[in-house]
């Protein structure tokens, strides 16, 4: 015969023991995460009219950023993204392959965040000093931020986060293309 009911005392002990082990292991783990997660604050450029102005005197966050050796990724607006696009800056699409294949920003390279390890070879030919723009779906999509952080961890010091992403780009009727025409 099976026991008739759950022993909640045991449930409590199992959960408490697991939590203690978890906290202890995290404490000893070199890749530990802090107990309290810090909000990922986006550095934004306040002067949206300036993106990349090598000769100008404008000192917006982004221009400063471009001149610096290496900086954490900064967020840019649609307008800034379009300027960078016209300057042939490489766009990286952080969404999954099927979404990329349906449609993406013209010339963008697919680098799905969730398959980063598999597809990171696309970065092989891109020098670490190259400016990059990471984008994903839109406002509710954090993939661009996570991809940017990953790129930064991989040594890319000039990464932009186009947080408005694909939705804004489409709404603005900027150039798009579909299919998988990257090599």
């Amino acid at each position: 015969m099976s026991r008739p009911r759950i022993n909640f005392k045991s449930v409590f002990y199992i959960i408490i023991a697991s939590c203690i082990i978890g906290l202890l292991v995290n404490y000893l783990n070199p890749e530990a995460v802090p107990w309290i997660k810090k909000e990922r604050k986006l550095i934004r450029d306040t002067n949206s009219s300036v993106v990349k102005n090598k000769s100008g005197n404008s000192e917006s966050a982004v221009t400063k950023y471009l001149n610096d050796e290496s900086r954490e990724p900064v967020a840019i607006t649609l307008k800034q993204a379009y300027k960078l696009y016209n300057e042939k800056v490489i766009f990286l699409d952080a969404r999954d392959i099927p979404e990329y294949e349906i449609s993406h920003i013209k010339g963008a390279v697919s680098l799905p965040y969730y398959d980063f390890e598999k597809y990171k070879s696309v970065l092989d030919t891109i020098p670490l000093t190259t400016p990059l723009v990471a984008y994903c779906d839109g406002k509710e999509c954090d993939l661009s931020i996570m991809l940017s952080d990953k790129l930064y961890d991989n040594g890319y010091g000039k990464v932009y986060i186009f947080y408005g992403g694909w939705v804004d780009w489409q709404n603005a009727n900027y150039p798009v293309e579909s299919g998988n025409d990257q090599n």
């Binding site: 009911r5 022993n7 199992i14 978890g22 309290i36």
Partner: peptide, 29 residues
């Protein structure tokens, strides 16, 4: 503020309940 505490502990609850279940210890709980 709770995200990381959850991320640290939940996997261990999963692992330990899984192991105990595998060996038939406190199956109901």
């Amino acid at each position: 503020s709770f995200v990381n505490l959850f991320a640290i502990t939940l996997p261990w609850i999963e692992l330990i309940t899984g192991i105990l279940l595998l060996f038939g210890i406190k199956v109901k709980e």
